[in-house]
Amino acid sequence: MIKARRRPHEWIGEGAAATAALITFALTLAIFGFMGWLAMPLLQGETLTTLFTSVWRPDRGQFGILPMAWGTLAVALPATLLAFPLSLGFACFATHLAPRRLRKTLKGLAGLMTGIPTVVYGFSAVFLLVPLIREMAGRGSGFSIIAAVLVLALLISPTMILILISAFEAVPQPWQRCFDSMGATPEETVWHLLFPLATRSMVGALLLGLGRAIGDTLIALMLAGNAVLAPTDPFGPARTLTSHIGLVMAADVESLEFRSVFACGLLLYLLIFVLTLLVRYLTRRPAA
């Protein structure tokens, strides 16, 4: 009998990988637990009932964070839905549809854009976009949901573009050559070959973009106006969960008001978690 003898480097490697995975997992759980623990005073007793209401009046003991939850969705969802088709178009163009010479430049451009610090986007928008929106709307300050949505879309696009480009470039050349040889136009190749083969990565890009949009703090903080209101008017202000956390934490670190921040954290955590599960489920494919 030949016995499988495991060499030292095998089990060392496996052990290291398993340990790393375990630590990551434990840390994630710990953060969750930590937030729950810190939010405890709020989650007990009367204040809990006020948590999922729309009234944020800490001075009167009302800690409704629903407006912020809606604010997050009102900013992140449209931003993602706007950025995704644009990114998809850009990625198709940069890999297949643009004249050959232009392609490299376009890819470089997307890479360059991921490197721009978020604050630069926010800062430029305060001076360029916000006044424009104020004029167009004819009311309000211009610090609005729409301003945050537009800039957030711009912010998350480069990441999505890069994921999509690498997904499209992973489609084997022989198949693309074969499409060419069958007299397929570049558009047909994109539609019939790339999209079906890259569906998973496309959903992945969408998820990652949405995750970034939900998690981003600075853009909403700088541009969305931050008023605690249920977001109904695109030209009006909103406060997201993340900017709420930022604003409250900047003010104090002791009160119940501060504790509500952890409830926001928990909510964000769950939101991303559910999102991830959902996409996992949607992209699950029967084994080929």
Binding site: P172, P174, W175, R177, C178, F179, D180, S181, M182, G183, A184, E188, H192, L193, L197, A288
Partner: peptide, 29 residues
């Protein structure tokens, strides 16, 4: 290229069914 077709050295079927592989060229066209 619709008038002048090509077969490559290495067989390169798409990761699809037998039927779909042949139908591809038609749908594309």
């Amino acid at each position: 290229r619709r008038h002048i077709g090509m077969v490559f050295q290495k067989a390169n079927p798409f990761p699809k069914s037998i039927y779909d592989n042949v139908a591809y060229g038609l749908v594309v066209n």
